[in-house]
Each structure stands twice: as structure tokens, then as C-alpha cells.
């Protein structure tokens, strides 16, 4: 696995690189020189300290762009986390396991409900609940679309799922090895950051579920 991963990292896929570049351009520009955030910065305590800029009485520095807000590190990530790696089309993504409700086989036929957005791949009953399945690419506007739909990744309250083509691995992630998407732009709340070692996007499952909510 590690050998394969190294090989992939040694020759990064051009399409993946383009996608990452496009999505993380704002993170890259805000990140400190040298790449990934320092561990201390990434694992910032949730309780503010006297030195915390949040408590600084000085006027806050202007944001790099209007409407861009600084988001704190997610609570589930402070001490590291486990992530599920999976593939949609040619791209690899990761979801924090703590934010997932389960994985269901995508073998059953999905019922197509008319009038719903293109990202709605269909619905099915699983564990007594109606589950709405989304195509991630259509949902968030990136070029990553299910081709095989072998698994459904249940997120949110378990009534919404992302379709995926293949499961790869579950890995332990050090928060310092994540380039966090700290500047949450409108329309990109679904992007939590980039797993540096795995070279893949880390998705914010709750934000995705929220985008798919049906109530």
C-alpha cells in the first residue's frame, strides 16, 4: 500500500494536481512558508488563551478578501483523527470517520425522484430510513463523478450519503499533516482541507450533509 502510495506521490496525477491547485489556492497563499502548518498551530487549543488573537483588543487585521471568515480547527481534529480514503472517478478523497454514520453497499438500484437537482443520484431505503444519495462532483461543482457507485458513504443523520466508486483505506491522520481550509468561503464549506501525505481532499461531512438536507 505504502509503495503504491509513494509511487503515486512520486508521479502525481495531473488532473488531481489541477483540482487541488484550483481548490486550495487560497489555503496555499495563507499558509506559512514551508508548506503544512506547524503542529502547534494546527492543534490549537479550543479554549482561547490570553495570547489568542481572538481575545486581542487591538483591531483585527483586515481579511484578505471581503466575506472570508477564519474558521477554528474542528474539535474532532484537535488530537488527530481517523479518516476513510475513497475514490470517486479518478480522484481520491477522505472523510473523517467520526463524522460518518456508516457505509452501505451501492448494489441496490436507486430510485430516481423527478424534479430534483442533478447531484441527486437517487434514493433508497437502508436500515429503515430513506437515504438520499449525492454525486459529490455535481453537488459541489468539481469534476469528480461516480462511475461505478459501489458504496454509499452515510453522513449527517444517516439519511444522506455520498456515492463512491471504491474504498481504499482507513488511516490515522495527524492534524499537523493537514492543510486546513481555514478561510471558509461561501460555497466551499464542504472542503475541510488537504491531507498532505495522502494528497487528497478532506471533506467536511457535516457541511456536505447540510447542503443535501431535505428538511
Amino acid at each position: 500500500m505504502r509503495t503504491e502510495l509513494s509511487a503515486r506521490l512520486a508521479q502525481p496525477d495531473a488532473a488531481l494536481q489541477n483540482l487541488l491547485d484550483a481548490l486550495l489556492v487560497d489555503v496555499a497563499t495563507d499558509a506559512p512558508a514551508g508548506g503544512a502548518r506547524a503542529p502547534a498551530a494546527a492543534a490549537a487549543p479550543t479554549r482561547p488563551t490570553a495570547q489568542d488573537p481572538v481575545l486581542n483588543t487591538e483591531p483585527a487585521p483586515p481579511l484578505t478578501e471581503p466575506g472570508v471568515a477564519q474558521a477554528p480547527l474542528p474539535a474532532w481534529a484537535v488530537n488527530g483523527f481517523r479518516a476513510l480514503l475513497f475514490r470517486i472517478g479518478e480522484f481520491r478523497f477522505a472523510l473523517p470517520l467520526v463524522l460518518m454514520r456508516g457505509v452501505a453497499p451501492g448494489e441496490e438500484r436507486l430510485g430516481k425522484i423527478p424534479g430534483l437537482p442533478a447531484w441527486h443520484l437517487g434514493a433508497m431505503h437502508s436500515r429503515g430510513a430513506l437515504v438520499n444519495v449525492a454525486d459529490l462532483g455535481q453537488l459541489v461543482g468539481i469534476d469528480a463523478h461516480c462511475t461505478a457507485l459501489r458504496y454509499l458513504l452515510l453522513i449527517g443523520d444517516g439519511r444522506v450519503a455520498l456515492g463512491c466508486d471504491a474504498l481504499e483505506d482507513a488511516v490515522v491522520v495527524d492534524s499537523a499533516q493537514v492543510r486546513w481550509q481555514r478561510h471558509q468561503r461561501a460555497g466551499r464549506a464542504w472542503l475541510a482541507g488537504l491531507l498532505v501525505q495522502q494528497m487528497c481532499l478532506l471533506l467536511d461531512a457535516d457541511a456536505l450533509a447540510q447542503a443535501m438536507r431535505h428538511d
Binding site: 441496490e108 425522484i113 430534483l116 441527486h120 438520499n132 438536507r213 431535505h214 428538511d215
Partner: peptide, 28 residues
């Protein structure tokens, strides 16, 4: 009958009252 997903443009699926499970298939 489960409430139909009301995502995206509500107008486009306003006539979907709900979804039920029937013989492993969905009944809309």
C-alpha cells in the same frame, strides 16, 4: 411515506408528496 427530499429548486418537485418502500423498490 417518507417526506420527499426538498432539495434544490422546490418548485420542480413540489408534486412529489413523499416516498415509500415497496417490494425493495421506491414508490413515489
Amino acid at each position: 411515506i417518507d417526506q420527499a427530499p426538498s432539495v434544490g429548486n422546490d418548485e420542480s418537485s413540489r408534486y412529489i408528496q413523499g416516498v415509500a418502500s415497496r417490494d425493495k423498490d421506491l414508490l413515489i
